[in-house]
């Protein structure tokens, strides 16, 4: 094995177990999201109904609401708002993701040179291995930094984009591993999932904000049970943003692990992916200053941050304070490597 790995001990990757584990985690996070969302709707209904029925205890209003004796209008309206905004987001997302980047599309017969042909071939091979019905659109972004991402809310509208830097600095196998990672995002429908979570989270934060200011400026002469609600709303106003951010990040990291495991599943070897990840990581470390400028020069970089195979913030680029493991969309390089069977020697 090459020098790249001299600090790591190599074993095989149990991608089946990894896929299962992260599948469970996703269920948990998404379920929690829906529960919070519903709870928020119920909270508004409770607030509204308790305002007009001051003498009825909260528990009775709550029971009436969830058994539909009283129609929970607010819950239904927030649900409808969520559905509409999800639809709108899905419809416009593909136009958004490449915003600001300098790119061009590669097709089977428009490859300009050997490298572009190879890229297209590699993706087509992975498409065959994944059993996808459609070939994703392939884009090359003209940039020196090494990164790639996948997008599209269905197999049909799927696309992968890759920077020129990544294409030039990786060999065929490593390129294939990166593409396997991206196609795994597509076949696991991660884009749909994260978009859905993002939209729900945003609506949730808007709703709690409106509710908070409503309580603040509304009749604050509440008695008995109503007071409870006011306290809950005020606490949620400050806690909910934190909770959603943590949930989103947990979800995103879970899906990264899944895509890594999926890449190993498609290639049946963990070494190329591990090599590619290390190379991308090291490359970002050595060219930190230059890449920081390059990333900053490309407008709307934040649209893509979560979608990238490698989060630039991981290498300290964009220099936001406290890049701790807790607040990152991607797991650290060591954790990702150990999840696919390359553990750091002590």
């Amino acid at each position: 094995m090459t020098k790249l790995f001299n600090k790591y001990g190599a074993t095989t990757a149990n991608w089946r177990a990894s896929l299962r584990r992260n599948h469970r985690r996703t269920f948990f996070v998404i379920g929690l999201f829906f529960l919070i969302y519903l709870a928020l709707g119920i909270l508004i209904d409770l607030y509204i109904y308790s305002g007009s029925n001051l003498e009825v205890p909260l528990s009775r209003i709550f029971m009436a609401l969830i058994t539909f004796q009283v129609i929970p209008y607010a819950t239904l309206i927030t649900a409808a708002v969520a559905l509409v905004s999800l639809w709108v987001t899905f419809a416009f997302h593909n136009k958004l993701i490449l915003l600001g980047a300098e790119y061009h599309q590669v097709m089977a017969d428009t490859a300009r040179d050997h490298d572009e042909q190879q890229l297209y071939n590699v993706i087509e091979e992975m498409k065959v291995a994944a059993g996808l019905q459609f070939m994703p659109k392939v884009f090359i972004i003209e940039a020196d930094y090494m990164n790639a991402f996948a997008s599209g809310y269905s197999e049909k509208s799927a696309m992968v984009a890759i920077t020129r830097g990544l294409m030039n600095k990786l060999n065929r196998d490593e390129l294939q591993a990166v593409m396997a990672h991206e196609l795994s995002h597509i076949r696991h429908m991660d884009i749909k999932l994260t978009l859905m979570a993002t939209v729900l989270a945003n609506i949730m934060l808007i709703v709690i904000d409106v509710l908070f200011w409503g309580v603040f400026f509304g009749r604050n002469q509440r008695e008995g049970s109503g007071n409870w609600l006011v306290i809950v709303i005020i606490v949620l106003r400050f806690v909910l943003p934190l909770i959603t951010v943590l949930l989103m990040l947990f979800l995103s990291r879970t899906r990264e692990y899944m895509a890594d495991a999926g890449a190993v599943e498609l290639m049946r070897t963990n070494e190329p992916l591990a090599r590619a990840l290390l190379k991308i990581h090291n490359d970002h470390e050595t060219n930190k200053e230059q890449y920081a400028q390059d990333y900053a020069k490309t407008p709307h970089e934040s649209v893509r941050r979560e979608a990238y195979i490698f989060d630039p913030m991981r290498a300290g680029i964009e220099a936001k304070s406290a890049v701790s493991d807790f607040f990152s969309t991607h797991p650290g390089i060591k954790k990702r490597l150990s999840a696919i069977g390359f553990t750091l020697k002590s």
Partner: peptide, 28 residues
């Protein structure tokens, strides 16, 4: 020869696709 290089790439890719098709079959 540039053409030959592309052909070689074509060989590798062709064989890979076949192998991956078999793998996908077994996976399913």
């Amino acid at each position: 020869n540039q053409n030959a290089m592309q052909l070689q790439e074509e060989i590798v890719s062709t064989e890979n696709k076949l192998a991956y098709a078999k793998q996908a079959f077994n996976d399913s």
